[in-house]
Write a protein that binds this DNA or RNA. Structure first.
Lengths: 333, 333
DNA sequence: ATGAAAGCGCTAACAC
DNA sequence: GTGTTAGCGCTTTCAT
């Protein structure tokens, strides 16, 4: 069975392409009998509009590029789901793009050598700095996600990281912890994310008159939980002295949980632990994680709204939106 | 700055569109000086080929639809990553589609009312039966993923579920367990996946001359870990008598771990636990999970190869491929 | 080795 | 209300 085109349907129904197009798009001013006749032809021929033709004619693809480090990191998987759910009613589909946290890949997202495929992009940078991003001036409508790098000229949606870090650290202090460490920042090349969370962590200590102790900072080699297992275990064996650990994200917290358990320390009795992201599994670890919970559905919705406005032609300065977060208190702290 | 088209570049360089096109596609027979002149025009104008035009002209979009239940389930996130990595060198991009495990959504994937956007589809069904899928006859080249429903006419890639279930259950038996339960199948409407894993589990018990005990089967209300926490906790409180639990997947196992810990039972001393999928976190739980590890990269690669062949026009019977798996023994069993 | 021109399938402005 | 027609930007025979 060969391909059926709009013209074929028109011929079959004895009308023009325009009329068939009207029927397909539920255009108002079509007489019922005409509509029925055309619909019949569509059904008989099994006509399916070819989206490539439509896209070329309208100049819009209905595709949004969603780019971040790695879909296998639970936070990003959950983010992708939220975005994909929010995109559907807006008539957009999501095309997945992973950067692997390399500069070249991130840059090539902004400096695309081809055009037309995407109507817009949602991009959570991880290694590019604000200045580098600003220098690229993507010609695709773009909204940045997360706390990393955002030039004033571009839209961005995030949660207030320093505030959240301060809150969750204060929660630990309020429960009597004093020897509070931090787990999960990069060994070198601190990301903006880590920087902001560390800043909030330190601020909370300062607020409470606690002297921050650099020996309680535990960097990791990778963003997965294993990186934290290795790093924390090693530092515990070296005599790390803490009664609480603020982790950069839930994966680091899960790794930390394992390292502590493995060393024979009990959570939260010996050491309290907090996470960040509130990934689904954080409620099921043992003990379950006290964590920072960003409102991901709102984040996705807002980002998509801003992007839609850009696509529609809005050309003003960058809007930097902050969406809500909360501290979810569970067993680990 | 307005859009630059192929014709603009051609005008600028004083050549025809064809020549510009040749340069862009690294066509062999172009004189070096011509190539240089055209390239200069491309650079000066900042020309970026419009993919929509190309797609319409070639009839191929370079897009593959990847459809499964829910990207926020770690196994699917890891699968998506593997597919997206395998797709890149083949020149394909991945468009994400979640079915939410509903019949209507799965069906609408196969009965698409539009065409042209995708060159092919990778689809892991979860609720449709083989007969239902066969009845739909998608007109898009399609390869099915996973053990669920696959008509003889369609390609499919999976691991040998009954064998793997039998192996991991036998591993428990070999380590002296006898009162072995199963966790994580659906309360009603057993999926093909659960059916096959239960079959292998039962086979292993039969092999060892152990009488399967239906009271040791623990169904769950959802595929997330929470479903297992609830179900297992409840059954433990009701006096469940087991020394091992084979879980349908790692999420169920993680939930089971928590339920056991919470009840004061130790893993693996009191109860051994096994998972399925070898998601990244299964190495970091405490205790870490003994689990079935499908070779996901190979699965993704093979699926993509079969799909590429279909796209290229292969029209033979369905190929049903089995990719390797192994039992990864960790602390939990 | 390069150019001319006919599509790819659909949309939308304009005419009737 | 419905038909005509000119693109959308690129590829691709077929000439030259």
């Amino acid at each position: 069975m060969k391909r059926v085109r709009l013209q074929d349907v028109a011929d079959r129904a004895g009308v023009s392409m325009k009329t068939v197009s009207n029927v397909i798009h539920d255009y108002l001013h079509v007489s019922p009998q005409m509509r029925a006749r055309v619909q019949e032809a569509i059904d008989e021929l099994g006509y399916k509009p070819n989206l490539l033709g439509r896209q070329l004619a309208t100049g819009r693809s209905g595709l949004i590029r969603l780019a971040f480090v790695d879909i296998s990191l639970p936070y990003f998987a959950e983010l992708a789901r939220a975005v994909s759910i929010a995109a559907r009613p807006a008539g957009y589909r999501i095309l997945l793009e992973e950067t692997g946290a390399t500069y070249d890949t991130e840059r090539s997202l902004l400096q695309d050598t081809e055009s037309g495929l995407f109507d817009g992009m949602l991009f959570q940078p991880s290694v590019m700095t604000s200045a580098q991003i600003a220098a690229c001036r993507p010609d695709l409508p773009t909204v940045l996600l997360g706390e990393a790098a955002a030039p004033l000229t571009m839209d961005r949606v995030m949660i207030d990281n320093p505030a959240a870090a301060r809150e969750i650290t204060s929660h630990l202090i309020a429960s009597g912890r004093r020897r509070i460490g931090f787990v999960g920042h990069e060994e070198s090349g601190l990301s903006e994310t880590s920087r902001q969370r560390l800043a909030g962590y330190q601020q909370a200590l300062d607020d409470a008159g606690i002297q921050p102790d650099p020996s309680r900072l535990i960097a990791t080699k990778s963003y997965d939980a294993m990186g934290a297992v290795t790093a924390v275990t090693q530092r515990l064996e070296a005599g790390l002295d803490v009664d609480a650990l603020v982790c950069r994200d839930d994966l680091a917290a899960i790794g930390t949980l394992r390292a502590l358990n493995h060393t024979g320390l009990s959570v939260p009795d010996d050491v309290a632990v907090t996470g960040w992201d509130d990934i689904k599994l954080s409620a099921v670890t043992f003990p379950s994680l006290t964590t920072v919970s960003p409102d991901v559905p709102v984040l996705a919705t807002r980002a998509l709204t801003l992007l839609t406005e850009r696509i529609a032609g809005y050309d003003g300065m960058g809007r930097h939106e902050v969406v809500p977060h909360q501290i979810v208190v569970r067993e680990s702290a």
